[in-house]
Design a protein around this nucleic acid. Structure first.
Lengths: 157, 157
DNA sequence: ACTATATATTTGCATATGCAACAATATGCC
DNA sequence: GGCATATTGTTGCATATGCAAATATATAGT
């Protein structure tokens, strides 16, 4: 028979608590599941869901500086440097050359990027529907509310 | 004056809709913000929040196969191979060698891993409190409910 | 035992992410 | 103008993630 010291028992309870309650673990799973839904619908267009999010943001807010994109999306600037590089290479966005600030040029969507966007909308809608079905009205409401109240996102209406 | 064709207007509205409503974008931001909270609290222990999640799961469910961890966490097996390798190297987990299935051995927590876990609990709690404060009761309820109903996670009580 | 199929894991490739340190430019103060 | 400081962006490093293909083992059917 195994010896069960009091601290071991306490430790077990702590582990149980983390597994059963950790909010991050749940948020990360939600993120993975939702990402795979959107990636799945977008795959045939050759862009990932992350890239679509960047593309619509630039299309809407551009010309926009990297730092401002980062603030809106709570993304590290270094991540943006790299993620945007891929999109520049693909010709979906471009740098606005007007030399206002020598540290870097704001970004804007290209005609090619705008074309791609308009093609993609139905697939995005499909993914959005699947996501909504998964998380329910309650989930949708919460994500939007959090976005608006805590992350400063536009809320539409 | 710029010419505004009807399709352009439609396209603009679509972009506006995606920016204002995309559930994935919001879930990803939530994920980044929460991850940074937990990473921040755990940093001094030399492990990331992701690794803590893996560690508690193995501690609770081990010996457990990679495939089963993947199912619980909705994680691709290939991701697990790599993430677990780091934890094996750090000596927090180990392979159970009893040769049941030659395709791979189940994983279990080591004494070192268990020690680390018990030290970390207070920091996890701090992070959990910060997260709870950010997303509110409503957010907490939703994440737990989604975890339990849609992702098959244990719900504790 | 043999073969076909199913299951578990790993590898190659590509993207996503953040921290720390660095580089470059901008800005404010004198 | 010239220096100190703040802002913006990039690089090196490490981890996290998933798909497709390859590998290896297990299992079922004969």
């Amino acid at each position: 028979m195994k010896l069960e010291l009091p601290e071991m028992k306490q430790n077990k309870e702590n582990i149980e608590q983390i597994v059963c309650e950790c909010l991050l673990s749940r948020a990360r799973i939600l993120n993975r599941v939702l990402t795979s839904i959107y990636d799945d619908e977008l795959r045939s267009y050759g862009l990932k869901a992350t890239q679509l999010n960047l593309l619509v943001l630039v299309a809407r807010a551009g010309p926009v500086r990297r730092i401002d994109i980062g603030k809106r999306l709570h993304l590290d600037p270094s991540t943006l440097t790299r993620n945007l590089k891929i999109m520049l290479t693909n010709g979906w966005i471009e740098e606005l050359i007007d030399g206002e600030d020598g540290r870097g040029s704001p970004l804007q969507v290209t005609a090619k990027g705008r074309d791609l966007l308009s093609q993609i909308v139905p697939s995005w809608r499909k993914a959005q529907d699947r996501a909504r079905k998964l998380i329910g009205d309650e989930g949708e409401t919460l994500l939007k509310r959090l976005g608006a109240r805590k992350f400063g996102l536009p809320s539409g209406r």
